[in-house]
Each structure stands twice: as C-alpha cells, then as structure tokens.
Design a binder for these strands. Structure first.
Lengths: 219, 219
DNA sequence: ATTTTTTAAGAATGATCATTCTGTATATTG
DNA sequence: CAATATACAGAATGATCATTCTTAAAAAAT
C-alpha cells in the first residue's frame, strides 16, 4: 500500500509541498506535525508565560519528543522565538491585515480594533497577547527577547503608519508616526486589559473611542 | 547607652512612629528595613519578572533573611503582592497624583503622560511598569494575580475618569468611561514600548498625541 | 538482509527552585 | 541572672528545572 505524505521536510510550515513525488527523507519519519506543535507551544507560553512554561509541559502538549525539541529549536529559547513567529503568522498577521486598506479609514480602523479585541478575548485560557503580555515580561532580563519585542512592535507601528499614509493623514511625517504609535499603544493597552479578565464588551467602547480619536485627527 | 529606634513594629512602613517613647518589642530586633527591602523586591521583580526572580536573589537584595521573608509575607506570592502595593504607593501613586486637578485638562494630562514616560524609562534596568509588564504576565496562570491586576487597572481608570469629570468631559458617563479607558490604555501601551528599550524621546510624541486626542474630544 | 540515517522514549544529570527546619544570637521581662 | 521572645544564618529537603545521553524503533539505501 502506498502512503501519501502530507508534508515534506522543511523547517517551517511555510508552503506545503505538492503531495506527489515527495522524496521522503531517509530516517524514521516524524511522529508530530510542526504546525500543530507550534500551535500548542503558543498556547502554553501564552497561558503560562515563558518561565512558567516547563519543557515537560511543552513536550507533552506539542507531542514533541524532548530530543526533537532540542534538535529542531536548540532549546527553550529557540522554541519560544519560533512560537512567537508562528503566533505572528497565524494570529497577529490577520489582525494587521484587517487594516486594509479596503474601506474608509474609519471602517478599517474599526475592523482592526475589532480584531484586536477578538484576539485578546477569544479564549479565556489565553487572555491578552503573547507579545504584549509574555514577551514583554522576559524582555526585562533578556537582551535577545528585548530585541525581538522591539522588532515586533516596530512592525505593527509601521503597518499602521502605512495605512494612515494611504489616507494622507499626518502631513508631517512626525505626526503620522506619533499617531501610529498612539494607536499601537491603544491596541496593546487593550491586550493588557484583556489579560486582567476584561470581556469583549468591556473593551469595545475603548476601541470605538480610539477610532473616533484617530479620524478626528485626520480632519 | 540609650539607642533611639527608627521604626516601631508595624506591618508596613506606612507612617513612621514618633522616635521617642517607642515601646521596643520583645525579642531580637530586625536587621533590615522594611521599606528598603520592599524597594529592593520591587526592583528585582521589575527586572526579572515573577518567575524569573528567585528567593535566593530576593533575600540577597532585600537583605532579608529567608526565615523573615516567610514569616512576614508567607512566601514568594505574598512578597510579590507586598511589592506591588509598595510600587503603587511609591511609584504609581505620584504618577496618578500628577493628574491633579491643578491646571487645565491639557496641562494635567501632559503632566500625567510625562510622568508615565519618566517612570517607564528612568532606569534602563527596570524598563516599563511592574504592573503592566510583570503582573500582567503571571495573571495568565494565577487567579489571585489576575484579580490584583484587574483591581489595579480599575483604580487608574477611575482616577482618570474622575479628572475628566472635573472638566465636564463626556456628557454621557459611557463616553467618559470609554475615554478614560482609552487614555489608560495609551499609558500602558507606552509602558510596554519602554520595555522594548524605547527612550523617553521615542515616547514623548505618543504622549503628546494622546493629550491632543483627549482635549480634541472634550471640545 | 545489512547498513545508514533519522526519530522516539525516557532515564540520567546536575543545577536550581521554594520552602522548612535547626541551632544560635540578641533583645526585653521578671 | 534566668526565662521568654523574636530574629538570624544557613543547612536540609524534596520537587522541579533545562539539558544531555542512551538505547530502541522506523524508515530509505545498498
């Protein structure tokens, strides 16, 4: 009986290889799916924090053998960074994507903050944001993580600034950057409030206020 | 030789007792100062995070004997909560106090956000905010800490709402609450950006934008 | 079939963790 | 000077931590 393999060996789950003619690698095949494993790792870190997440628990939930974890990611730090990247691809990416531009600035910002609130409150076991609530803590004592946080933060601010620029907000670039930074700060503040147990209904008024402030600025 | 004692036995360093006539307690006197110890504990937790701060290090930096730490605070969790309270009294309190009212709303909000930026960037070893960056992380897995976070967050929002009310901002209470929530979110977003290494100069434009948004709303 | 290559399962390791315990020092009280 | 009470210093404890190592399993290659 011939078995069709789902994935080909590749570091990430980036692009699925065609299912046919896949040259199966040499040794024993993996018993775990990288994407599922990273999903699970994201979940554990998101819930327990970096130092609170033990390798034991990570191995159990990712269904990854200890040896494979160290082989693939070099250790806990590497797995965490991989989980962050996976989180950005699968969770934060779509949120940023909702900025469009697809509609008016007001519509797009509303969609964006809506997505922020939803992400932060969707699962009560993982409130808030992996980056704003977990990576931010360990950034205090770990230079690698601090740099990672800086990069991730900059990416969102650039994305927002780009959307503002599309509508010609902020004649002076300085104002535009400041406004984008402020909107990003609000998004992160919403994530933090969600971490304290705030519901979607609690956060919606804040999101609305943010949108009103932004478009008032554009006029 | 008669020695004048600095402090009287009391759980906190709330109010210094008069230096005379202090009935010295029975046994061996303490070899550490509670206020200094809490300052040190705040520093360690702020830098290393909750799980990253070991009892060993906490004892060393607070100059508190292990036994005294457990006697006084019951354990790491109790010490952390005491450190949070001390942080609120000594650090966050003055920041909230700068809201006044002492000047115009614009002046007071400017002073407030100025104080936020300063607190978050003053010491590069402790960037950000103990509550927004450290307590928020452990709130994910610990119900006690989540409740504490909720309470501390609510306190700041109430304080901001109170200041807005003083100027008659937000005819509808709903708008006022939302605006206060948004301003608090910005303050926390600023704390987070500081955690990534942002300087005071990086954060000032965001603070200014926040003030402009708020007073534009009031008009 | 044998060899080669990769993964799996989990024991082993040594460090570090939070907490408790033991004995001693330093004070007041009687 | 006892007796009592509190704090100290640090050893002891047992759990848990991240990481490494050992051995077996599962595949392709020869």
């Amino acid at each position: 009986m011939t078995v069709i393999f789902e994935t080909i060996r590749s570091k990430k789950g980036e692009t699925m290889q065609p299912l046919t003619n896949a040259p199966r690698p040499r040794g024993r095949p993996r018993g775990f799916k990288i994407d599922q494993a990273l999903d699970a790792a994201v979940h554990v870190f998101w819930q327990e924090g970096y130092n609170g997440a033990s390798i034991d628990r990570l191995c159990r939930e990712t269904e990854m053998p200890r040896a494979s974890l160290y082989q693939e990611y070099g250790g806990k730090e590497g797995l965490f960074l991989a989980a962050i990247a996976h989180y950005v691809e699968t969770r934060l990416g779509p949120v940023a994507q909702s900025l469009g531009p697809v509609g008016t600035l007001e519509e797009d910002l509303t969609a964006f903050f809506e997505a922020v609130v939803t992400l932060a409150t969707l699962d009560s076991r993982t409130p808030g944001c992996l980056i704003s609530c977990v990576l931010a803590e360990v950034a205090g004592a770990n230079g690698t993580f601090r740099q990672e946080l800086k990069t991730r933060f900059a990416a969102l601010e650039d994305r927002i600034a780009q959307r503002l620029e599309h509508d010609g907000i902020g004649v002076e670039p300085k104002d535009q950057t400041a406004l984008a930074g402020m909107l990003a700060a609000i998004a992160r503040g919403i994530m933090l409030r969600a971490r304290s147990g705030a519901s979607s209904a609690d956060l919606h008024p804040i999101a609305e206020a943010a949108v009103q402030c932004a478009i008032a600025r554009g006029r």
